[in-house]
Computed example of a mutant assay.
Amino acid sequence: MFSSRTPGLDRLNRTHKASIAGVAAAGVAALTFSLVPGAAAHSQPSQAITASQAAFTATPDTAAQAAALHTSVFKQQVSAENTAKVQAAAKVKAAAHEKAEKTEKAKKAAAAKAKAEKKAKAEKAAKAKAKAKAKADAKKRAKAAASRSAARTPVYANNLDGWIKESLSIMKKHHIPGSYDGLHRNIMRESSGNPNAINNWDINAQNGIPSKGLLQVIPPTFAAYHVNGTSTNIYNPVANIVAAANYAADKYGSMDNVNSAY
Rank of each mutant, 00 (worst) to 15 (best):
R5K: 11
D10Y: 02
R14W: 05
H16D: 15
A18L: 07
A18Q: 15
A18F: 08
V28D: 10
L31Y: 11
T32F: 13
P37M: 07
Q44V: 05
Q47W: 06
Q53M: 01
A58R: 09
D61K: 13
T62S: 15
T62W: 07
K75I: 05
Q76H: 12
N82I: 06
K93R: 12
E101N: 10
E104C: 11
K107H: 12
A110W: 03
K121P: 09
E123W: 03
A125E: 15
A128S: 15
K129E: 14
K140G: 08
A145H: 06
T153H: 04
T153C: 07
P154F: 03
Y156N: 11
A157K: 13
N159A: 07
I164F: 07
S169K: 04
S169L: 00
H174L: 00
G178P: 09
D181T: 14
N186Y: 06
E190N: 06
S192D: 02
P195K: 12
N204D: 14
N207E: 09
S211Y: 07
F222D: 05
A224D: 12
H226G: 06
N228R: 14
V238M: 06
A239K: 04
N240F: 01
I241S: 10
A243T: 00
D250A: 13
M255V: 14
N257T: 02
